[in-house]
Design a protein around this nucleic acid. Structure first.
Lengths: 399, 399
DNA sequence: CGTCTATGTCCAACTAGTGAACTCTAAGCT
DNA sequence: AGCTTAGAGTTCACTAGTTGGACATAGACG
């Protein structure tokens, strides 16, 4: 980092400004860049030339149709980012470029009793395969985002308890993956990444404050505040699953009673249907049966919705987000669950907070987390990464 | 605002950098400025001369003791800021300078049935008196922060319902005061300002994420996230008073049942003691009696604490702040209320979120809101205000 | 009393952005 | 087809602003 406040830093800032503008828009003409960045046309001209020489940007000579505008876009091989998501039952990997385009994506089942080493190895293999499939050079990987289904200590990078499996507790996924892939790896938990994914590609587009509620074997929320994931000082923000709804309710795995989770999470809800619907029911199955009209499943899902709605109402009173996106298997139930949620929110939240709230199902389904991991990699990368020589050849900043 | 990314903006940024460095440190020599800002000595020399010419900075010719360093400090009359706080029963005004020092402060009772116009007039008079008392020129007022005890629509600046008195609903306090004082006025509600005040001067110093819980005639929370007040997209974040604790509890003024407010706010709690302790009891009185040992009052306060603790536990699970500061009359009860709060939090919040939480009483008492208003004025002002001609003579930015 | 050292200032060099003039090309009009 | 028009991009001379180094200054130290 050069001395701040100097002209060279200004120049660098302007370079980044242009890169960011192009990245966000996909492709722009120079005149458009000038308008969106507020720089003069002359400056843009110089900067574009410099970026072109460096290879971070591509100029397609004559754009389709227009007068004679040359459209500027990030060069396809300027860099790629990778998203990896460890789920309870599967592993998902996505490869994207800097223009927010997903180039390749694949998922495979992950053995529940696989060791953590095995899991990381599998992830590495899948990543390598996908990179090869896209035909991009490995050295172009600018960053990796990693999702884990459990609380992670951001300071030390250690996976906490209540994670996937006992064997994974205490491991440091980011370090493990970094060791295998040789690039910076950024981790976060599944709910936060889901939130990010839905915000960038899904139901949260255009909103700056959003809560993503993921209902699966547990209940968690990812909070996006002012466009950024909010983790809280201790890194445990968003634990909506353990707010108390009923002080004398069922005992929760966290030790309290009547947590939202005990009314909404799969592990507590499925047993309700065991006597009537058999023992090997999954949440997915319940949702399917409900859609087909099964009254018991409908009733259960509506009840779950009402309870989630109570939790969301509290969230709403405290944080007043403009949008709540429902993720996880349950989202597939659509209005069957959203209706009761909205009803509960309307009843329990203060009107001024509830009025401008929209509750939507996630648009990405099970992909939300991987895509969120991709988005994390993109956002953590910083635009400056593109400018440093690091990606292509490791040359010192000044000769 | 000039075009961003230009050299002139760079110069401006450097000016601000220097002003900020000086403001934070109180006074610095030029060499020290150069070191802390990273600018070169030559640049600092130029900038200091420019600032001196403008009058925003003072250079005391020979500093005490040193080699021959001239110490640079914000000129005492570079500007002052004003905080105004309308409470339910009183009006409070504080005058401070840019170095975060409070120069004068005064409060006076405000008639409960005073009209809003009367209130604004009184505020104007008190402000004028205090400015005169400090002996600073009126034209040096750089900004005003204004606190109102009710929800305010940030878009329109209109006071919402459930405000102080019916007569104030629909007024636009910021505009009113701006008309009277002729300076930019920034408004916010009392809880948010209390949070800001405690963060800058009180129990929240050094923390970037904090929740300030104000228990008075209602219950509200001010949330500071990453050093800034968080208001939420709709401006109604922090309504902790209306999260539901008991679905079949007492009916609340908001229309729901069992809101935290119905267990903790003065208007619901005081009636409990009417039969035993008489009818003209205030919250202050209850706290005093409790401290003196009155068992009924102690019990009531402990119960209130337990309920607040439940609310804080929810807040904690969702937001995981590193500190909760209790304000309002109730804070005077000290451990009598903090103990039960902590106990409740420990019981209902998930351990990892509760572990690093500290629950403290506010250090500023009734002054928290005015000082917060002062802080709001300071923070909204931005260092750039000092640079514009606005403060001294209204000259256009460029000749 | 001379030397040393850190401070602040001045100046020439350099970096980088800007407005204005200019070129280029496609579209629209006659 | 030929002329006009207008937006896109480039070039150039100019200006704003920072910087390194030379220089003056004045207390501290021996």
């Amino acid at each position: 980092m050069e001395t701040p406040g100097s002209q060279s830093s200004l120049h660098r800032a302007n370079l980044e400004r242009v890169v960011r503008a192009v990245r966000l828009a996909g492709s722009l003409t120079q005149a458009e860049i000038a308008r969106t960045t507020g720089l003069s046309a002359a400056t843009v001209s110089n900067i574009v030339r410099e970026l072109k020489d460096r290879g971070t940007v591509e100029v397609t000579p004559t754009s389709a149709g227009g007068r004679r505008a040359r459209s500027v876009s990030l060069s396809g091989d300027a860099g790629i980012v990778i998203g990896v998501d460890f789920g309870h039952t599967h592993l998902r990997v996505a490869v994207g470029n800097l223009a927010h385009q997903v180039l390749a994506e694949e998922s495979e089942p992950l053995d529940v009793d696989a060791s953590s080493t095995q899991g990381f190895d599998r992830a590495e293999q899948l990543v390598s395969r996908l990179i090869e499939a896209t035909g991009v050079d490995r050295t172009k990987v600018a960053g990796v985002g990693l999702g884990v289904p459990g609380p992670i200590d951001l300071e030390s990078g250690t996976l906490g308890s209540s994670a996937i499996l006992p064997g994974w507790i205490g491991t440091r996924p980011a370090e493990e993956m970094k060791g295998r892939l040789g690039v910076a790896v950024h981790v976060d938990n599944d709910a936060n990444l889901g939130a990010l994914g839905e915000m960038v590609w899904g139901s949260g587009r255009g909103v700056r404050d959003l809560a993503y509620i993921k209902v699966a074997s547990g209940v968690g929320a990812g909070l996006v505040i002012d466009g950024k994931i909010y983790r809280g000082p201790g890194g445990t923000a968003g634990e909506i699953g353990h707010i108390t709804l009923d002080e004398s309710g069922p005992v929760c795995r966290c030790g309290n009673r009547g947590c939202l989770e005990t009314f909404a999470a799969a592990r507590y809800v499925l047993p309700l249907l065991q006597s009537s619907h058999g023992t090997d029911l999954t949440m997915e199955g319940v949702v399917r049966l409900a859609r087909e009209g099964d009254p018991g499943c409908r009733r259960v899902i509506a009840d779950v919705g009402r309870h989630i709605g109570s939790g969301v109402a509290n969230l709403c009173n405290l944080l007043n987000p403009s949008r709540v996106v429902l993720g996880g298997d349950l989202a597939e139930a659509g209005e069957l669950v959203l209706g009761p949620i909205r009803e509960s929110v309307g009843r329990y939240a203060i009107p001024s907070a509830a009025r401008q709230l929209s509750v939507l199902p996630g648009a990405l389904g099970g992909r939300a987390e991987v895509l969120g991991a991709l988005a994390l990699a993109l956002s953590e990368m910083g635009d400056s990464t593109l400018l440093d020589g690091t990606l292509t050849v490791a040359t010192p900043a000044f000769t």
